[in-house]
């Protein structure tokens, strides 16, 4: 009966694996605590950015000079689609025991994530080529710190995916891997939520302000 109740936010294993469902409660709660503290880190980097983008330009490039909306649009599409595909992977994780479908959705998510990182690397390279380097001004330091911190998180998520794929291929979809995947999915969704804030307060504000 309690298998029908949600024990944590996110997709619950529920009736598809009642024992795993109960094991999930403490580990998922612990992971939520990490996610929320990570969110505080990003919020403070964003607060620093917002002050620096107004008062920390130091005569150098301004937010509108370093804003490439076309590139930001492609990055947003890639990351949003990858948030959707990891949601589909979550359904595969819950309802399909053989792990093949999970691997397919996970692979697609990884490809989208790699595309996102490649676009960001291109953005950074073109900023550096224009002389808009982090040491130029407080604004650019804040810009690179905020975006770099997010990109590092995405890279960590990709590494996590690679490790999970190797484990899946070695052992099949065991319960421990199911629970690990559920935490990865929360982490990945959270990175897209952080990106919504970055897109708005860095890129759209840069273009509109």
């Amino acid at each position: 009966m309690s298998a029908g109740k949600n024990l944590h936010p996110g997709i619950n294993l529920g009736h598809s694996d009642p024992a795993g469902h109960h094991q999930a409660e403490p580990v998922m709660f612990g992971f939520w605590i990490f996610l929320m503290s990570d969110l505080v880190l990003f919020a403070l980097l964003l607060a620093t950015y917002s002050a620096m983008s107004v008062h920390g330009v130091a005569g150098g490039p301004e937010p509108r000079d370093v804003t490439d909306l076309a590139s930001a649009g492609i990055e947003t599409a890639l990351l949003l689609l990858s948030s959707f595909t990891i949601g589909m992977a979550s359904l595969a994780n819950k309802y399909h025991d053989d792990g093949r479908r999970l691997l397919q959705w996970l692979g697609l998510t990884a490809v989208l994530g790699i595309g996102f990182l490649a676009m960001e690397a291109r953005d950074f390279a073109s900023l550096i080529a224009e002389g808009a380097v982090p040491q130029r001004s407080g604004f650019l330091s804040a810009h690179f710190t905020l975006l770099g911190c997010h990109a590092l998180h995405v890279a960590a998520g990709l590494l996590w995916m690679a490790v999970l794929v190797l484990q899946l291929m070695a052992t099949g979809l065991e319960r421990a891997l199911r629970l690990r995947f559920m935490r990865l999915a929360l982490f990945w969704h959270m990175l897209d939520i952080v990106w919504v804030a970055i897109l708005t307060f860095v890129f759209l504000y840069g273009a509109a302000g």
Partner: peptide, 13 residues
């Protein structure tokens, strides 16, 4: 995406 809602969520979360 994260399925956080006011009704079915576990209180602590």
């Amino acid at each position: 995406f994260l399925h956080v809602d006011l009704k079915k969520s576990h209180r602590d979360d």
